[in-house]
Amino acid sequence: MGKYVLKRLGQSLIVVFIVTVIVFGLMHMLPGDPVQIYLGDTATEEQVEYYTKMFGLDQPLYVQYLRWIGGLFKGEMGRSITYSLDVKELLLRRVGCTLSVTFPAFVLALIIGVCLGVVTATHRGKPLDSLLTSIANIGIATPTFWIGMILVYFFGLKLKWLPVQGYVPFAESPSGFLKCLVMPVFVLTLGHLSSNTRQTRSSMLEVVSQDFIRTARAKGLNENTVIYKHALRNALIPIVTMMGGAVGGLIGGTVAIEKLFNISGVGSLMLTAIINKDYMVVQNVTFVIAVVVVLCNLLIDILYGYIDPRIRVE
């Protein structure tokens, strides 16, 4: 097992390296000069030259690349041109913001989605199944930002129960922090929930038609044991696979929600950085996302083996 993890970590390192090369290359291939964008049209040539030198952008590309990578090894991420801030600090703050929305939503969607999936599968063809499945379909078909807007309108503007938008750090005011997060977390949960429910339902339906479920029933086990002990674990594999695909979104993929609720998270940071050609920000955010995705996939592969002994690594 330890050997397997080491081997996989080695492979992950190669993947991350390739990602850094690609993102670096792409960013520098795009037209436009970040210093020029930052300083605007009125900047003098001296100013541009000065800042270009200060950010090390006058160096050959391979030197710039090696500097970035070398910095990463020392735990440094360079400076953002647009924000004039240390990228590491900037990123840490933004990641905290984003995760406080995405992580609860991810966990809630997983738990509730699996439960609803099991319920719909065990009530197949009955009114409860039809009701929940229809809701899940509506959930998939409806854009989350639209639901978000409706929520903001009712709970923020009309009823004034919750703040319309914004983000309050936990350290400042725990209750404010929670209040701010209710709506964005809810909206995001809803988005994931529907697909989780449907995936669990179809996966469960497939499993309960298998022979070993009949065996379990033939043993005289009660229906709950049959469903939760025998069927669910077998049905988990495709759900876990889907979770693996969704972790990338934990850090990067919630621009719409961030914009709607005016939360300065990683998504909006990335968007601004790409527009402004803020090299260091784009490169480092991509790097962090790559590392997280790669590690999560490794975790999921190990989890597979735990769930299903047939794919357990030797």
Binding site: Q210, D211, F212, T215, A218, G220, N234, I307, P309
Partner: peptide, 18 residues
């Protein structure tokens, strides 16, 4: 299960794999 036991046809799929 208690008083009536059943042996099924396909041994490859009648046991829970996990």
């Amino acid at each position: 299960g208690g008083k009536i036991g059943i042996v099924f046809q396909e041994p490859m799929s009648t046991l829970n794999p996990v």
